[in-house]
Design a binder for these strands. Sequence first.
DNA 1: AGATGTTTCAAACATACGTTTAAAACACAA
DNA 2: TTGTGTTTTAAACGTATGTTTGAAACATCT
Lengths: 211, 211
Amino acid sequence: MAQKDTVTAILNAAEELFSERGFAETSLRNITTRAGVNLAAVNYHFGSKKALIQAVFARFLTPFSEQLASELRGYRAQLQDEVPELNSLLMLLPATALRTDKGNPRRLGIFMRLLGLAYTQGQGHLRKYLQTEYSAVFRDFMQLVSAATPNLSNEDRFWRIHFMLGATVFTLSGVDSLTAMAEHDLGKSADITSVVSQLTPFLAAGLNAPP
Amino acid sequence: MAQKDTVTAILNAAEELFSERGFAETSLRNITTRAGVNLAAVNYHFGSKKALIQAVFARFLTPFSEQLASELRGYRAQLQDEVPELNSLLMLLPATALRTDKGNPRRLGIFMRLLGLAYTQGQGHLRKYLQTEYSAVFRDFMQLVSAATPNLSNEDRFWRIHFMLGATVFTLSGVDSLTAMAEHDLGKSADITSVVSQLTPFLAAGLNAPP
DNA sequence: AGATGTTTCAAACATACGTTTAAAACACAA
DNA sequence: TTGTGTTTTAAACGTATGTTTGAAACATCT
């Protein structure tokens, strides 16, 4: 097995298991067993469990943030001096996320669950890593959101952005169990793209609500 | 030290530590050290770590759900046959939560963080416990929400309720770091009650958004 | 083919965990 | 005070974890 195979097998297994059980609840033995590699492979290829956790995030986040940065440049160029339209701006995020690994929308749910864990679970090293690594693109995006909502005070916008973030992360991270519930309660099935298309008008309405 | 003192000392320490680090990341030795009691006290008084986790939730949730059930009875009685008004209905939740342990709004943040953990972190036993124990009151509340939003389809309402839940849990569970960010970015301080008063119009607008 | 650097492997290491135990300390009624 | 049931204590138990090790297997190049 070539080196790359082992590394990606570990990353795949870790990604799934972390999202299912959390970081502390997933042992290296769980990961290496599912990946079909030797236990020592993690420490050999990544150095430590912490480094593996960061690598799992980097594998998704680096292509995503690069893609988003380029999309933002295009959006800004097409915009000229007009005020950006909120709905299309918000749609940019799930659109690039789904485009980042096309053909596998399930992965977005997995990654959202990981993102939720990164916030709720301790893992101080992870928050620090994410902040230093990916905050530039996020700031760019926020600047456009500010331009799209000139009627909001900075304070209102600040809070509502985080309300939106919460609704998104929470819903998409639990999208599997939620769609199961929806199917049981309503008899209607749904996938992550349909949930996103329900989510965006909700978010836009909340963000534009009268104070 | 009387029995009750040891038990509540453990519950207090566990509540804080769980909310700070998560369940798996908090050891019984952490808890008993902070509580100033012997390590074996947890297994003596609660039986196991799992049972302690459930007890932490029960201490908050049992008074809360009883209070809420009574508030819902009052709300329904005052309503007669009118259609319930959405904003006042939504306000009922934070109002009773803040009333449950009055004088300590910080505790609501702690508990929201725990609730978020219960969802995101594995802890299957916890989800099962919460469901069997407190689902009745929740169903009552949901019925009123349905009456307050007759224009929504069951499917739209289902998803938007969960969007609201996500925004609430996520924001209130991170209320400490968020208020710190708000103070740093905007120079304005905020407490949990002011966040809640910002949150409810956001939620109501999202729930009533055109489909 | 032989030498060299890389990757895998089974085994062991040290440490931390949840839990159990048996004795000591305590509370309190007879 | 003695006796009884409860609570606390220090120590140990068994298990699981992340990490390290040194030899074996492998790949790559001259």
